[in-house]
Nucleic acid binder design. Structure first.
Lengths: 184, 184
DNA sequence: GGGAAAATAGACAAGTCTGTATATTTTTTT
DNA sequence: AAAAAAATATACAGACTTGTCTATTTTCCC
C-alpha cells in the first residue's frame, strides 16, 4: 500500500528531475512516507530505482501491446502502431524523454543494476518488434527489429530535446520505408 | 595552459563516470589544479561542463569531416562514412556511449545550459548530414538527414549498453536502404 | 630584474547525500 | 481483544557537495 504510493511518487520525481538529482529525503517528504519504510522494502536507493524501472517497463510493454491490438489485423499497421504510440507519448505535456535511456546515461557503467534493468527493457521491446516484423513478412525479422529500435531510440532522444512530436512522424516514415525494403 | 589540462581531465572523468557523479574536488585533485583556478575561468561547474561539451563537439565534427574526406568522391560513400566513423568510435575500449545524449539525460530540463549545449551539437550533426544527403541526390535532404540522425542516436545508445560495434553495422545498412529509397 | 597576471594552499560556509539506530505508534491478522 | 506486522518520528553518523575568502607563491612578459 505504502509501497505503491512510494513507487508512484518515486517515478514522478525521478522522471521529472533525474534519478540521481532526487534525494531520498525529498522523495520521502513528497510521498509522506517514513525513511525506515523505504529501507524496509529496499536495501538501497538503487534497488528502489530498479523497481521503478521494472514497473515502468511493464507499463510501456502493456501500452505497446494495446496499441498493436487497437491497430487491427493488418500486420503492417500493427507494426507501425508502435510509432503512433510514440507520437502520443511525445504529445504528453509531462514527456521528458525516455526513462530508460536516461537511466542508461545516468548510470553509464554497464554492470550497474540500474543500467542492466534499463537495457533489459530495451531488449524486451526489441523482442516485441521482432514478433511484429515476423508477422509483417520481413525476410530477416531480427535485423528489421534492430533497425526499428534504432529509429525508436533516436526519436525518443530528439523528442525530448525538441519538445515536439515530429520525430515520431519521421521515424514512422523511415520505418515504413525499411519495412517495404525488408519485404522485397 | 592549466585550463586545457583541466578541460582534458574534466572530459575524461565526466565521460567515464558522469557529469553529476564527478565532484569538482575529485576533478581538481586528479588534474592537480587549485580550486580558485577553476573558478577563475568558470563561474560554475555547469559552465565548465558546457565548455567540455563544446570542445567535444568540435572534435566530433572534425572527425566526421575527416571521415567523409577519406571516403573519396562518391557521395553515397561519403554519406555512409558517418557509420564507419561510428563503428570505429564503438570499437574504442573507452567508449561509454554518447557524451551528448548522456548530457541531455543528466540534465533533462530542456532550458538548462548543458542540455542546450548538447542539443546544439546534435543540430550541427544534422546540418552536416543534410549537406551529405543533398550531395547524394536525396529528394528531400532534410527529411533524410532527420531519419539518419535517428539511426545514429539509436546506434549510440545500443552500442553503449551492449559494448559491441554491431549497432553501427545495423545503422549503416538501414541508412543505405533509406538513401536508396530517397533517391527514387 | 621589476611589475602584472596567473596559480596556489587551505580553511571555511552551508547545505546535501545515503544509510543506520532506537523507540514508539499504528495497522492488520488471528 | 491479543499477538504480529507494518509504519512512524527523530536523531545521528560520516561523508560529500559547490562555491567563497584570504594570503601567498609562482609564472610570464617587457
Amino acid at each position: 500500500m505504502k509501497r505503491d504510493h512510494l513507487l508512484a511518487t518515486a517515478w514522478r520525481l525521478f522522471y521529472r528531475d533525474g534519478y540521481r538529482a532526487v534525494g531520498i529525503d525529498t522523495l520521502l517528504a513528497e510521498a509522506n512516507v517514513a525513511k525506515m519504510t523505504l529501507y524496509n522494502h529496499y536495501a538501497s536507493k538503487d534497488e528502489l530505482i530498479v523497481d521503478v524501472i521494472k514497473r515502468r517497463s511493464e507499463e510501456v510493454l502493456t501500452g505497446l501491446r494495446e496499441a498493436a491490438e487497437a491497430a487491427g489485423n493488418s500486420p503492417e499497421r500493427r507494426l507501425l502502431s508502435v510509432f503512433d504510440w510514440l507520437k502520443d507519448l511525445f504529445a504528453g505535456d509531462d514527456f521528458m524523454g525516455c526513462a530508460f535511456i536516461r537511466a542508461l546515461s545516468e548510470f553509464p557503467d554497464t554492470d550497474h543494476p540500474v543500467h542492466r534493468a534499463a537495457w533489459t527493457h530495451k531488449m524486451a521491446v526489441r523482442n516485441m518488434l521482432k514478433g511484429l516484423a515476423t508477422d509483417a513478412g520481413a525476410k530477416n525479422p531480427g535485423a528489421l527489429a534492430d533497425s526499428l529500435r534504432l529509429l525508436i531510440d533516436g526519436a525518443l532522444v530528439a523528442a525530448h530535446a525538441t519538445g515536439t512530436t515530429k520525430p515520431a512522424t519521421v521515424a514512422r516514415q523511415a520505418a515504413a520505408s525499411l519495412l517495404a525494403s525488408a519485404r522485397g
